[in-house]
């Protein structure tokens, strides 16, 4: 016995809003945690910008902080996988996911509510870092439309990380495992063009860094913000914007169906 498609869609939207509000209520309950989450990338920006900035030689004497910011914010999007993972794993381990599954609510909303909240959080983090960036001398040079396109690509990467996070959380179901996830995500973040030129790395690592989905988003954001980068020279670097669209979509195409399958397997 199923409801009409229209009313199903309406309930899915209403349930998504309810679960998004739940996460907003979490933030209101734990403002300190949210603040730390928002300020962590700013801390990284200042640390890298002022500690390492002087030691980094960029082509044409470009400003390191101009160069650094797109890499830093893209990495924040990548690390978002930990936020999604923890939230879904805690709900699953504590039985909250089962309670949702025993309610006459929309199945899809459990994840769409999570996705919307995570995107809101990342958009806020993005706004804070870009704002702080402006204070230390960063700015977009190619107009508001391209700057918005860069922000959209950054959020697209975050969107892909939501599905990776949901899949891993439903697979492992243990909130503690986030520590292992962190250990795996950090090298992935640094084996990219975010801080140093892939050309300076050993051959295999350079290839990994050049093709890293993070590198595509970083290079595309630098391009669209008009910030200095490592220049072209490799196929992925020359097609950064296309790859910054394709990589996240590919990740979604893989991990969304896998997440749905994992979700269904909770009932088997």
């Amino acid at each position: 016995m199923t409801a009409l498609p229209l009313s199903r869609a309406r309930w899915a939207a209403a349930d998504t809003a309810t679960l998004t509000r739940r996460t907003l209520a979490h933030w209101a309950r734990r403002p300190g945690e949210v603040l730390v989450g928002l300020l962590f990338p700013v801390l990284l920006l200042l640390m890298f910008g002022y500690l390492f900035g002087g030691a980094m030689a960029l082509p044409d004497g470009a400003d390191y902080r101009e160069f650094l910011l797109p890499g830093m914010v893209a990495m924040t999007m990548l690390f978002g996988v930990e936020t999604t993972y923890t939230a879904v794993a805690v709900d699953t381990a504590r039985g909250v996911t089962d309670r949702f599954r025993s309610l006459p609510m929309s199945r899809a909303a459990v994840v769409t509510g999570r996705a919307l909240a995570d995107l809101l959080h990342s958009a806020a983090a993005l706004a804070v870092v870009l704002g702080c960036g402006v204070l230390v001398g960063w700015q977009p040079h190619r107009g508001p439309l391209r700057a918005l396109a860069a922000v959209a690509l950054l959020l697209l990467l975050r969107f892909a990380m939501i599905w990776l996070g949901v899949y891993l959380a439903l697979l492992l179901r243990r909130p503690e495992t986030v520590a292992a996830l962190q250990i795996l995500v950090w090298p992935l973040g640094f084996a990219s063009n975010a801080f140093v030129a892939p050309a300076t790395m050993p051959g295999w690592l350079a290839a990994l860094a050049a093709w890293n989905p993070l590198s595509a988003t970083v290079a595309a954001a630098r391009d669209l913000f008009g910030n200095p980068g490592w220049g072209a020279g490799s196929w992925p670097a020359e097609h950064a914007v296309a790859l910054a669209v394709a990589w996240p979509l590919l990740l979604v195409a893989v991990f969304l169906p896998l997440s749905v399958r994992r979700w269904q397997r909770l009932g088997r």
């Binding site: 309930w11 209403a14 349930d15 309810t18 679960l19 739940r22 209520a25 979490h26 309950r29 734990r30 504590r94 039985g95 909250v96 089962d98 309670r99 949702f100 309610l103 006459p104 609510m105």
Partner: peptide
């Protein structure tokens, strides 16, 4: 269920309102 399946970050009232809303 065997474990209290409630949201530990929220208050009790918030939990009941949340589940009430999900019951539409």
């Amino acid at each position: 269920g065997q474990h209290a399946a409630v949201d530990e970050i929220l208050g009790g009232r918030q939990n009941l309102v949340l589940f009430g809303r999900l019951h539409h």
